[in-house]
């Protein structure tokens, strides 16, 4: 792979922030028209069920008594809807502490990630400096290093830095992300230069421009990259099981996996309720910002 190819490869798969969203929907006419519409609705429903069924089943199983989750003959709905799985897990101090601890880490991670990556994105998008191209290629190249190779040696590095079993080992190593720098830079490149010129006439420096003009306009890329970071932290499992050993510092996924083989192996309803509560925050977060997230999946230059 030549030194420049990562950039070209990425520019090929560039994610663009603006795009059209037209469709080719026409109202049905005639019998065949209606038949096609019914067919489409049916196929659409199949997709809906396939996507949502496992989650729906998880929520419902959370309302079941211990023995009902896996019962023969099989029963989809519980005999009696038990709220106590949810109340019990919400009353569990360990679960709540883990939830709070993970939430705190995820917030710190998101803030750190957005801060360092947006600063770099601004520098690459707007500043003139020596070795700009070399640094850009170096940063982008890190995207192409596969996780497993560095997972093992990163573990050795954090061990030597005495970071094991601390919050820092979860928050710091993954915060800088070339993908995030790339995404935010792409957005900054599209901000018209005329905005800066006005600010410069008012005596604003290069950094002042970032704070006063770029940051206030950064909501769209920050929402997308912020949620990406939050999700990555919230759902991480492998890195925590390697680096966190004290049960009181476990993150959510680690706790769930432990719970599943321990107490949860007999109390399945409780395990399901815990899983629902662990998934709920990110699902809600997604539903709030779904328009921005889905709207930003646009591929250009790939046709």
């Amino acid at each position: 792979m030549s030194a420049t190819s990562p950039t070209t490869a990425l520019e090929t798969t560039r994610i663009v922030l603006a795009g059209k969203d037209h469709r080719r929907f026409t109202a049905p006419h005639g019998v065949t028209g209606w038949a096609i519409l019914v067919g489409k609705a049916f196929v659409g429903l199949l997709f809906l069920v396939a996507a949502l069924f496992p989650l729906a089943w998880m929520v419902i199983a959370g309302f079941k008594a211990k023995t009902e989750v896996l019962s023969t003959p099989f029963q989809f709905f519980p005999e009696v809807w038990h709220w106590d799985n949810y109340t019990k897990i919400l009353g569990d101090a360990t679960f709540l502490r883990t939830l709070g601890w993970t939430f705190l880490g995820a917030i710190l991670f998101t803030v750190l990630s957005l801060t360092v990556n947006s600063l770099a994105a601004y520098a690459f998008a707007r500043l003139q400096f020596r070795f700009q191209r070399t640094l850009w290629v170096a940063v982008i190249t890190t995207m192409f290093i596969p996780g497993m190779t560095i997972l093992l040696t990163s573990f050795i590095v954090v061990t030597k830095l005495a970071m094991l079993d601390t919050l820092a080992v979860l928050v710091i190593p993954g915060a800088a992300s070339a993908a995030s720098v790339f995404f935010i830079r792409q957005f900054y490149l599209n901000i018209p230069a005329s905005l800066e010129e006005a600010a410069m006439l008012d005596g604003c420096g290069r950094f002042g421009i970032f704070v006063r003009i770029f940051l206030p306009l950064s909501k769209p890329p920050f929402v997308v990259m912020g949620i990406t970071a939050f999700l990555a932290y919230w759902n991480s499992y492998v890195w925590p099981i390697m680096t966190i050993t004290s049960p009181e510092k476990f993150v959510l996924q680690q706790y769930l996996a432990e719970f599943r083989t321990g107490r949860g192996s007999s109390e399945l309803g409780l395990l399901m309720a815990g899983s629902v509560l662990a998934a709920a925050p990110v699902v809600i977060l997604f539903l709030i910002f779904q328009r921005q997230i889905i709207g930003n999946i646009k591929m250009a230059g790939l046709k």
Partner: peptide, 14 residues
């Protein structure tokens, strides 16, 4: 898109 945001651990459990 919803399954995309579910963790591998929860998907495995379910």
């Amino acid at each position: 898109y919803i399954p995309t945001i579910i963790s591998s651990v929860i998907a495995s459990i379910v």
